[in-house]
Design a binder for these strands. Structure first.
Lengths: 326, 326
DNA sequence: TTTCATATGTCAACCCGTTGACATATGAAA
DNA sequence: TTTCATATGTCAACGGGTTGACATATGAAA
């Protein structure tokens, strides 16, 4: 059996209340007693039961993180930073990989509610479900508009899309294709909008390819193949994430195209991983750690009840990293 | 205030016990009552408090996952699979990014114990701390020997190292360098051993470079630079993970070396991410999902108390993926 | 000598849901 | 008519730790 507070008290020769006082640093305790108690805890290998504590204090110190998948380097890195910051602040993280599937998100949300999380950080698409139960729950969304009451932390997607498209234009690309995720309702596609606006301004027609199952390599490649058959004139590609960009480059090479001579390619995200594995790739870098910090900042304020501002949106700066693919 | 079981009971016009019976599907309940209760729960937005439940049942259904960092694609993907499988089995995951730092691991371990996790999956180096408290706790280690009583799940590292080195030899490399992590005590370095053994057999001298701070890009590059000054004759490189391999290739290009003509490079891991971003890279692929499945299998057996076999080790098959870097 | 900060103990209520024991009621089968 | 499966209620203990109220004791300062 796991030792409990009574066992510690007995071994230390004090009352359970005193042990609790040591644990919570309340009231008067002599150093001598403190040591006795701590020794007893060490000897017994005692760990205070946070479940019992939470039940009483009504504070779980648990946060939920819902991401599409930590397999994706952007979300993997984001999750790392989020969790690291949480840990440094005494919060624990329940991880959820929703794969952007509504049913999974619903189940995860349910699970998180049952586990009395103090707040949730959401990096996933859908989650319309959230609305009806927002009530007391603190929620922050990363990069996605979820509802009017949920603050969003993102980097400057419009500016990123603009920078990317402008770069291709400046490099004299005539036929610039956008490779993006699927446009869903209620989701703002600022990178895409910036791409369209920028092309509009110089009288060019947008050519957009949508990749539906974001985390399915196969479907990605099929769609990218279509670009070459349907738009063989393509000489510039803006992919809204680096993985798409990399996939495109691979396909382009297969088609005998030279990057950047024949086609210039720019990606998006600029994760450590992709920067290391494919440092040549020109990309728009998101400040992932800063996003994580800001998201947690806001979430904690919400948890403390200090947050009232609806329609709150934080836009963090992006930066262009020019490699040799443009 | 969050609704509790009594509120549900009142609204449904039944007793709290009946609500509990509905929740746990125990005893006799008419369908009519079931529906009334479920309606009331929906109306009130009621979520059963898993904390209170756990306290009574002494089962948290919580698992701890300690990884170096989900930023790394191997661990990001591993974490994804582990979590997905856990979720499908009704387990919840507390995520810990230890960065292989002993003090952090200790803190995380402490945290997990306090949270009454049913088991822990460890993908991190150190954790000698584990020994003294192993007692009732179910633990599985991935790829690392931690103690005699902790089962290890890994892929066949020796075979992988052998295949990799043999491939370079077969491709007529004369000066084969190994880029590896730092060799620590108590850690088995089978990939390295296989490399050494394979070279020994044909009378070649191993040349080993160790990268200490695995997740520090800067230090990686510095060490790799040394290879070119100290061993300009290098014509084959076996990197024990794909990130090292990619870093080396980047450096090689900077030095005007052609891959594979001047230097052949093989990596290790074969994650989805690297396969997509750098599909040319020859690598040894680890069956990440299989590793995750097997780890959880064993962990659950431990939790159910069915596991007694000490010194248990599971070795899963690796495969060679030949790209164009060799 | 009085007073008070320090130090510790006892006790019970509380957090929320679970469970076993026991009571009661209904309707159908024997 | 008896019996029993079905259906629901009441009640209290339980899980492990927290906390407030109150009692008591000691030693030092006033």
């Amino acid at each position: 059996m796991k030792p409990k507070i009574d066992d510690v008290a007995r071994l230390a020769g004090v009352s359970p209340t005193t042990v609790s006082r040591v644990l919570n640093d309340r009231g008067y305790i002599s150093n001598e007693t403190k040591e006795k108690v701590q020794d007893a805890m060490t000897k017994l290998n005692y760990f205070p039961n946070d479940i019992a504590r939470s039940l009483y204090t009504k504070r779980s110190n648990l946060l939920g993180i819902i991401m599409p998948t930590t397999s994706n380097p952007f979300f993997g890195e984001l999750t790392f930073h989020l969790e690291s910051i949480c840990a440094s602040l005494g919060y624990k993280v329940l991880l959820c990989n929703s794969l952007n599937q509504k049913d999974k998100e619903k189940k995860y949300l349910d699970m998180l509610m049952r586990n009395q999380v103090d707040g949730i950080i959401v990096g996933t698409h859908n989650l319309g479900i959230l609305n009806y139960q927002k009530q007391n729950l603190a929620v922050v969304s990363i990069d996605r508009y979820l509802s009017e009451t949920i603050p969003v932390v993102s980097s400057d997607n419009y500016e990123g899309g603009k920078l990317a498209t402008e770069l291709l234009v400046r490099k004299s690309c005539e036929h610039i294709v956008l490779i993006d995720g699927v446009k869903e309702i209620e989701k703002s596609y600022l990178r895409r909008e910036a791409y369209i606006d920028t092309l509009d301004k110089i009288g060019k027609t947008p050519i957009i390819y949508e990749i539906p199952e974001v985390f399915n390599v196969q479907s990605q490649q099929e769609i990218i193949e279509n670009i070459f058959s349907e738009h063989p004139e393509v000489d510039g590609v803006f992919a809204t994430n680096d993985i798409f960009a990399a996939s495109f480059i691979t396909a382009a090479k297969r088609h005998g195209k030279k990057i950047p001579e024949d086609i210039k390619v720019i990606g998006y995200d600029g994760t450590e991983t992709v920067r290391t594995v494919l440092p040549d790739l020109t990309t728009i870098r998101q400040p992932i750690e800063m996003i994580a910090k800001e998201a947690i900042n806001i979430l904690l304020k919400e948890i403390e009840g200090e947050f009232t501002d609806p329609l709150h949106e934080t836009k963090l700066p992006i930066s262009l990293i020019e490699g040799s693919t443009t």
